[in-house]
Write a protein that binds this DNA or RNA. Structure first.
Lengths: 328, 328
DNA sequence: TTGTAAGCGTTATCAT
DNA sequence: ATGATAACGCTTACAA
């Protein structure tokens, strides 16, 4: 910057003024141009680290996910990254799979991080004041303390139930994790309530707890199929489970959707790669990530942040759901 | 740090000495303990930004991928992240999908990035000296100038060919992108050479160019099936294409592997989620990411970096390959 | 409109 | 073994 200043024949702070280009900067046009030209000629590149030190901001956002390889979070990351990059912010990605979220938060703190986006699971794993004094946006986890972006999880469950009911199913099962995470709980609740509202009971046998993974879905569906008299359709708490369930059916020779309808939730890319294609409730994970980033940036900039209403979900009817088998 | 110094009754630079804890630091044990205790009592947390400014290192690594949502790169990122986090480095993730790689490199530079890991496509899109003076490790792209980690891409093609040959296939097709990327080229070359070595010709009709995506694989396979007299097996340049090809077969009522064998490359998670499960050549993408990170860190630390031999690939025989149909 | 001076939280080089 | 002192590259009063 000093070099630029000398070349332009001005003082170094003036160069700073021009480069930072703040709206209140009142610099003579001629001077500004001279500075800008000198900067270009010298190939000057501002040093964000120095800027960060003095302004006490890092121009970087932290993002903590429970597992990057979970396709849902891959999409979230993708959305956050896009917004961050467009706005000139760096994205510090943290995967809580191998390193605890708390350690990541500490690391981000020591980097003067401007804000942190964290998923429900990560947030839950933190000690109470781990996030104190930080700009925080939670993913799919309403909170009294922090801002959040959410999807209409209850609506997702409801859509799934209604879709199944419309196809004449009356024995309907549910596959989901024994999770206390808001999104999973609400998907389940919305689903159960919609069934109840339609006067359709959910038998406890048709209700299977398993990890929200393909393996979990596979095992749960196998258990369901082993029962003499099972449901004709199931809603899975997420697509990974649904994919596992589908696999279990295919392996067992159970026709999908002829003998068993399956509906998932999330709409990950793989949903359209299997045969039949997975019917699911689409959650716009990438958009959630983008929204979280935009909200966090507003927080960082001290702008007004209004709570957003849940992101609408959409039923994506594809090949794994059909009419209930006759005579059941 | 000054607060800690005062509390410990020493000077501030001395605190720096014990906190940084360099091996050459000759500090009296008593003093060191006093400082450490004061630091803990005060909840002192070192400021990485300040450290970065003076040491001209950011303790951060940049990673540029062409598209995060490509499962292969998701795995690479995951591997890089783990190593970076474990070593106390931040990972600045850049997706070249929406923002050009060159812009990302510029942004990383202005953050004094310690090193950059970049994929072949991103590297190819850069102007010649965009990476000058940076610590760089390339993913799956040998180079005279930069370090790299590679997989045994030619070996992957060879494994695929041999597997198909062993099953008696003699009319074998190939689906791949018209890419100049090293990995794709080598997979293709290894495959073609192995066929040739076995005296099996590759007819130009059985050789289909399409984007390395599921949609590309689907279209290419459809074209192949439309031909009167097609191959009995195909090797796809990556799993996404193979998955698309599989879908095309299923949709067309072509039995896999009865009438058509399909083998992919990469071994992405979805490969085991479809039915039949995809036979593929497993490339350890996450390990490649981890290796790239470790190599880059050695570079950053000025340690000796020896070129690594390509990461071995492994044939994962699953359900989409079988014996060639009789009488063909 | 521009220049001067101070300082952001460290590390590093000296004396002491 | 420890303490001054000077950077690192920038922003931000405040003075001119």
């Amino acid at each position: 910057m000093l070099d630029v200043a000398r070349r332009a024949g001005v003082s170094q702070p003036l160069v700073s003024l021009v480069i930072a280009g703040s709206p209140t900067a009142r610099v003579a046009d001629a001077t500004r141009e001279r500075v800008l030209r000198a900067a270009k000629e010298l190939g000057y590149r501002p040093n964000v680290v120095a800027r960060a030190l003095v302004s006490r901001r890092s121009y970087a956002l932290g993002l903590i996910v429970p597992e990057l390889r979970n396709p849902f979070f891959t999409d979230v990351v993708s959305g956050v990254e896009r917004v961050a990059a467009e706005q000139g912010y760096a994205l510090l990605l943290c995967d809580a799979m191998d390193v605890p979220a708390e350690r990541h938060v500490e690391a981000l703190r020591s980097r003067q991080i401007d804000g942190v986006i964290i998923d429900a699971m990560g947030a839950a794993s933190l000690s109470p004041d781990a996030l104190a004094d930080l700009n925080v946006v939670l993913i799919d986890q309403p909170s009294d303390i922090y801002r959040c972006v959410t999807s209409d999880a209850a609506g997702a469950g409801r859509l799934a139930a209604e879709h199944l009911l419309e196809h004449g199913h009356r024995r309907i099962g549910f596959l989901g994790p024994a999770s206390t995470l808001w999104a999973f709980r609400m998907r389940e609740r919305g689903f159960a309530q919609a069934l109840k509202a339609a006067g359709v009971g959910l038998r406890s046998d048709d209700f299977r707890r398993a990890p929200a993974t393909a393996a979990g879905g596979l095992a749960a569906m196998q258990a369901l199929l082993a029962a003499a008299d099972g449901p004709t359709a199931v809603f899975c708490a997420n697509d990974l489970m649904a994919l596992g369930a589908l696999k279990a059916c295919t392996a067992a020779g159970v026709d999908v959707p002829g003998a068993m309808s399956i509906i998932g939730c999330d709409d990950i890319e793989t949903a359209r790669l299997v045969t039949p294609e997975l019917t699911t409730v689409a959650v716009r994970a990438r958009e959630m990530g983008a929204r979280a980033a935009r909200m966090l940036l507003r927080l960082v900039h001290g702008e007004a942040v209004r709570a957003m209403k849940p992101l609408a979900v959409r039923l994506a009817v594809r090949g794994t759901t059909g009419a209930a088998p006759a005579g059941v």
